[in-house]
């Protein structure tokens, strides 16, 4: 049972950072919608408020970890130029996708969209987390503010969804390969 270093890092980027960020965004959205529908917000104790802050910080860190690892670690592997005359493009995912009209769209639409819209999600969620933390004691006075923040969080969730969804499909169509081979479990 083996995995390459690049496969492992891509999994960490997509499933750990990206996946958990997406789930955390959904959690924040659920709580925001619930508080808007309930019209009142129960007073949170000090411990609860501390936990909320930790949750928001972890969510933001996951978002930034996802875009930074994607842009500076995995994207260079994805867009690596193939040597002249290379017959096997398996190690050059972008070139592999562009080599056929049937798969070119995955790069031209999928990656081109993902690489930019993905960055918007942590930017927006950082703002959402900051506003929720700063105004946590004045929720009722700022119901409109909370509704506006919900709309921004929804935009961030959709942006993260587009990036994550295309990321998953791209890694199916042209997976990032190579790197050191890591043995997770020896066979019989």
């Amino acid at each position: 049972m083996q995995v390459t270093g690049r496969e492992l890092i891509t999994a960490i980027h997509g499933m750990l950072f990206g996946g958990l960020f997406l789930m955390a965004c959904f959690g924040v959205l659920t709580l925001l919608f619930r508080s808007l529908a309930a019209r009142t917000t129960p007073d949170a104790g000090a411990a609860e408020q501390r936990w909320d802050r930790v949750y928001l910080i972890v969510m933001v860190v996951l978002g930034w970890a996802a875009v930074l690892s994607g842009t500076y670690v995995i994207y260079p592997w994805y867009r690596a130029a193939d040597p002249p005359g290379a017959a096997n493009l398996a190690f050059y995912p972008q070139r592999l996708l562009l080599s056929s009209p049937q798969t070119a769209g995955w790069h031209e639409l999928g990656m081109e969209w993902k690489e930019h819209i993905g960055w918007m999600a942590p930017m927006l969620m950082t703002m959402v987390a900051w506003v929720l933390t700063k105004y946590r004691g004045a929720v009722e006075e700022h119901r409109r503010l909370r509704a506006l923040v919900t709309a921004f969080a929804l935009a961030a969730f959709l942006a993260a969804g587009v990036a994550g969804g295309f990321g998953a499909f791209l890694n199916k169509k042209a997976p990032v390969q190579g790197g050191r081979l890591i043995t997770l479990r020896s066979g019989q």
Binding site: V67, T71, Y72, Y75, P76, R79, E115, H116, W119
Partner: peptide, 9 residues
Amino acid sequence: PTGPLSGVT
């Protein structure tokens, strides 16, 4: 290695 995306972001 990241190209223009590094500067854009």
